[in-house]
Nucleic acid binder design. Structure first.
Lengths: 187, 187
DNA sequence: GTCTATAAGCAGATAGAC
DNA sequence: GTCTATCTGCTTATAGAC
């Protein structure tokens, strides 16, 4: 009974990369097999329910990374601006400096949408809550905090779309740099 | 030699709707056939190079709508704020009040990206130019105008992604309402 | 200009050997 | 746990009748 050739974490990272590049419908089992270096049958050994289960595992895995790189820094104690700068660094890493598409975007399209829409919604509202709470902690009134939190999420998603369309990540980099100001700054 | 059953315009509208719903890779010829009400062979009669040509025609057609609904109002003469409000109404219609995904997003994913990336880039830079020129005409300095133009494009794209993820269009509606302020308003 | 029928290949998924 | 081989159905695309 030989051990796994690569750890499941690494498999999930490679599956995530393939889904990010091709989208859910464009990521065929053959491509996922290539991307992981595992044969198709090996993939089915890991994920009995096929592509859908692979996507669900990727979603959970990527969600864990997001939690660690972005949510944890935001929910620490200490100066709000510093926490936002740490989250910006986390977002930069999480999105491959702006080169990687967001699962929130990709899994909202085509057959993935039927599967993931409820979860996409709760990711957005969860992220917005954390941002809004932080803004309020920094003295911003509730209404403004919620609006700005929404604006930040919108800006991150939009910047990734624009980066993909233009082939340049400057819009994304700028959004991250302005992140503390966008959430806490003057109107 | 019977005439076409539905005009090519209508075919393109239905193809566009199908691409918007399923993405490029998810939009199979069968689905495109269903969406248009034409048999597969009829679609190939219209578009000899198959799906790629359908997508290219949709891209051009949708680009024409965008020109008409958004660019024309922005490049008219008259009060900049009024022109931006007209463009906001155009964007609202162009994106089905926030319910439709943007081709800029969808065609940046998977196999469509290989085909369309250069054109996506020029759509973004073109739209940004028009917005930036308008802001400068309204007295905004060049650097600020360019930054705000980029922010506006980012916000529209992001709002559409968030709308799709949450199933709510309020973020999109708000971005449109704030459009004049986002481009011309105080920092 | 539209259709039905069909070709050739790739999709997702499984069986069974090692 | 991995592989090769294979199955079924759907995919793109075409041929040819009307």
């Amino acid at each position: 009974m030989p051990a796994a050739i690569i750890p499941k974490e690494a498999v999930l990272d490679r599956l995530a990369a393939a889904f990010r590049q091709h989208g859910y419908d464009g990521a065929s089992i053959s491509r996922l097999s290539e991307a992981t270096g595992l044969g198709k049958a090996s993939l089915y050994h890991y994920f009995r329910n096929g592509k859908q289960e692979m996507a669900e595992a990727v979603f959970a895995h990527v969600g864990g990374n997001f939690q660690e790189l972005v949510i944890v820094p935001l929910t620490r104690t200490g100066d709000p601006t510093r926490r936002l700068r740490a989250a910006a660094r986390g977002l930069d890493e999480f999105y491959g400096r702006g080169d990687w598409s967001c699962i929130l975007d990709l899994f909202g399209i085509g057959s993935a949408r039927q599967i993931f829409q409820p979860q996409l919604r709760s990711v957005v509202t969860g992220f917005e809550s954390v941002l809004s709470d932080l803004a309020q902690e920094a003295g911003v009134d509730r209404i403004t905090a919620r609006r700005r939190a929404e604006d930040v999420v919108v800006a991150i998603q939009g910047a990734l779309v624009v980066a993909r369309a233009t082939g340049e990540r400057k819009a994304f980099t700028r959004v991250l740099k302005e992140l503390p100001n966008r959430l806490l700054g003057i109107d």
